[in-house]
């Protein structure tokens, strides 16, 4: 575990906490894409299949439980909680995310480290995570103004994989082997998708103005 990896996990955890805070404090999920949340729940469920069979460390197991638990809780809240689901804007959250799931699954069956259930599911979760933010970014561009907590949520979510890229670069130079090219390429694509969001986030921060995404 190197500092970049730890910073990445903490940034990811912060993004989840910010989203939970927003939903719990405001009892609203306005500006949040349910489809992105569903995709993330699928990402964690398909990636952490070995949660109970392959113990790595207490930290590893705890973090996996937090990510699976929080993503399912958020999906449940947005679908079932009486107050929260009323604030869900399904007319704006129209990205056809099932195509993303299908495309990632097909790609995972073609491009993986080994053609085994666990490796195909792992590659699927890596590819799906790279594009999972698309419904959320499309929703933000449609809804124009972004509230602070939503903006911070997306920012930290984007930043965490950037730290992972630094972690992979660090491991490439410090460890004798490097076999994470699938995660590395998908991670670069994932982080690149946030590029324009980061740009407008930085502009709004510099001008101390409201975050505005061009329609």
């Amino acid at each position: 575990m190197n500092i970049f990896r730890f910073a990445g996990d903490m940034t990811h955890l912060i993004s989840v906490l910010v989203l939970l805070l927003k939903i719990y404090a405001t009892k609203s999920c306005s500006g949040i894409s349910l489809k992105t949340q569903e995709l993330y729940a699928l990402v964690f469920l398909s990636r952490y299949l070995d949660l109970f069979t392959n113990y790595i460390s207490l930290y590893n197991t705890l973090m996996k439980l937090v990510f699976i638990g929080s993503s399912l809780a958020i999906v449940w809240c947005m679908r079932m909680h009486h107050a929260v689901k009323r604030s869900y804007d399904k007319e704006v959250d129209t990205f056809r995310h099932y195509y993303l799931v299908l495309a990632c699954f097909v790609l995972a069956t073609l491009v993986n480290e080994q053609f085994t259930l666990r490796e195909v599911c792992w590659a699927f979760s890596i590819y799906l995570e790279a594009v999972a933010i698309l419904p959320q970014l499309v929703l933000l561009q449609r809804s124009g103004n972004v509230d602070n907590l939503t903006g911070q949520y997306v920012f930290f979510l984007g930043a965490y994989r950037a730290f992972y890229i630094l972690n992979w670069i660090y491991r490439y130079f410090t460890e004798q082997y490097f076999t994470r090219w699938i995660a590395c390429i998908a991670g670069i694509v994932q982080t690149a998708l946030y590029a324009d969001f980061f740009y407008y986030y930085f502009i709004s921060w510099k001008n101390n103005a409201k975050l505005q995404l061009p329609a």
Binding site: M1, S57, M63, W122, T179, R180
Partner: peptide, 10 residues
């Protein structure tokens, strides 16, 4: 150790 290295990340 190899397998450990590739799947110890989240």
């Amino acid at each position: 150790a190899k397998d450990q290295g590739t799947k110890d990340e989240l």
